[in-house]
Amino acid sequence: MSSFLAPIRMVGRGALQALTAVGRAGYLGTDAVRALRKVDLWGPHLVPQMSRIGVESVPIALFISMFTGVVLALQASYTLTGQVPLYFVGALVGKTMILELGPVLTGLALSGRVGANIAAEIGTMRVTEQIDALETLAYDPVAYLVTPRVLAGAIMFPMVVILSIAIGIAAGWGTSMALLDITSTEFIKGLRLFFDPWDIQFAAIKSITFGVTVTAVGCSFGFHTRGGAEGVGQATTRAVVISSMIILVLDAFWAAVLLS
């Protein structure tokens, strides 16, 4: 193999690995859905997982979206000079927060926080044979470990995203009033100008798929971890990378499917 072809091969291998990862996560996700009927196995873990995946992610999500809101307001007012009235800052902050930045930034942040956490946890269980142990105790590890996490992700991601959106808009609003020459009334006027209730549903649908993606990919990489601590580290990194990629692809997909 000439060194000239090496980069091309690397690209090919990366793509294949990514596709394999997506396929595995898809399989595991389907298994997790099938395991939904084993309520006795996942039921007791749902609330703790919702707490871990959702509640504990609220602070970081709010932190991110708060600053996003501030930046959006400042950049909007910087861009909209001249003929465009300043209340457009409200429209821009609202629309961008709801449609794009709220779901995607939260999704990406949570793929780091939640996806990595799940991959590391399940990966460790894999390499220390805890998953095998579950199996020998007649516990279906998919129902016991994967289903509650995926379900919690599907339920809690939209919640976290909606709170992020609310905080982001509030931050943009506050910034507009405090730092820009925009009154509260003007900001709200802009906010309402292009508002469509469908936008909120769009954000919710998107974030449900992000939640399923992040948790399923995290679980999948955890499940397929090989080797010791190094394997766990690798699984964690890849889980974050792959789920971030899928989130961006899904984002484009939903925009194409639902907004056209």
């Binding site: 460790t124 269980m125 220390t128 044979e129 805890q130 095998d132 142990a133 579950l134 199996e135 020998t136 105790l137 007649a138 279906d140």
Partner: peptide, 22 residues
């Protein structure tokens, strides 16, 4: 899969490295 789980209820397994749920 289901029958395997039923079979496993008849079998105990002591892992080489304990494999306790931490």
């Amino acid at each position: 899969q289901e029958s395997v789980y039923r079979l496993r209820q008849r079998v105990g397994y002591v892992f080489q490295f304990a494999a306790l749920f931490d």
